[in-house]
């Protein structure tokens, strides 16, 4: 079955589209909402967005594959994105990435079997004063060490 936006999302999209002089300019906000609603953006959702904005599905694909936050494949309930950029790596991000891989039993880009966690690295999150840091879904966690990671993950249901 082809996906459909909820009524609530549809209303939000209408409001967003109205901000721009061209409908297709709303693609990023609409894709954020799409991901929020469907978890990821597959070809089905691309078509949905294309139709909604009056553009071709290929244009949606061009955009989706450009921006790293837009997931083409499903991710776990918690998407852990740990920063591997300079300030964080100076403060040991590398070993924390290894620790997370080992702890979750997955490689970068993979999702745990219970679909709970997906692990990725990310470029600078703009929170270098809290390095090393990571983002789980949209929440930031800084000043990480192994113990803190354990606590954070243990608290995620």
């Amino acid at each position: 079955m082809s996906p459909e936006f909820s009524d609530r999302t549809k209303k939000r999209i209408d409001k967003i589209v109205a901000r721009y002089p061209r409908k297709e300019a709303a693609i990023l906000p609409v894709l954020h909402l799409t991901q929020q609603e469907f978890g990821h953006i597959s070809d089905e959702e691309e078509k949905l967005v294309a139709e909604l904005l009056g553009i071709k599905p290929i244009e949606v694909r061009e955009v989706v594959t450009f921006y790293t936050m837009l997931n083409q494949r499903p991710v776990g309930k918690y998407h852990i994105q740990i920063c591997s950029n300079l300030s964080c790596s100076l403060l040991g991000a590398e070993s924390l990435i290894d620790y997370l891989k080992e702890k979750l039993g997955i490689e970068l880009g993979e999702t745990t079997e219970d679909k709970k966690f997906t692990l990725s690295t990310v470029e600078c999150l703009g929170a270098c004063e809290q390095a090393p840091c990571m983002m789980i879904n949209f929440d930031y966690y800084g000043h990480l060490d192994k113990k803190k990671i354990d606590e954070i993950l243990d608290n995620l249901k």
Binding site: L86, S87, C128
Partner: peptide, 10 residues
């Protein structure tokens, strides 16, 4: 604010 090391605007 993507320049690595930068977080002032945040």
């Amino acid at each position: 604010e993507g320049e690595p090391g930068t977080f002032k605007d945040r």
